[in-house]
Amino acid sequence: MKKKVLIVDDEKDILISVKQLVERDGFEAKTAASCKEAMNLLEKEKFDLVLMDIFMPEQSGRDCVEKIRKTPKIKNQKIAFLTVAHLSELGKKIIEDLKPVDFIQKPINIDDFSKRMKKILK
């Protein structure tokens, strides 16, 4: 059975392109354009990894991951951030406390992304 990835980003183009990359590597991918959509999917389905953007309107990636970590059923969900954000030292400490498995910078380097995905989902 294929490993399943949930991609969370408010930008449609990003969702389409990242989905293609994930599927190209042999994984199943679903998308959510907001934290609310992501939470709905996470409540119903099991995902091996969530790729989370940080900059999103209404509820940011940080907020969304905090919410996931407080939800008993999905609190141990594997999450990696996929974002353009360059964090300060303060920001890195805050994000580390949310226990992501990786922090992937956009724009994506395709080969690097593929290696990281295979490493996380092996």
Binding site: I54, F55, S60, R62, D63, A85, H86, L87, S88, E89, L90, G91, I94, I95
Partner: peptide
């Protein structure tokens, strides 16, 4: 909460 991710101190 978002801005403090790139600031050095609040």
């Amino acid at each position: 909460k978002e801005i403090e991710l790139f600031a050095d101190k609040v």
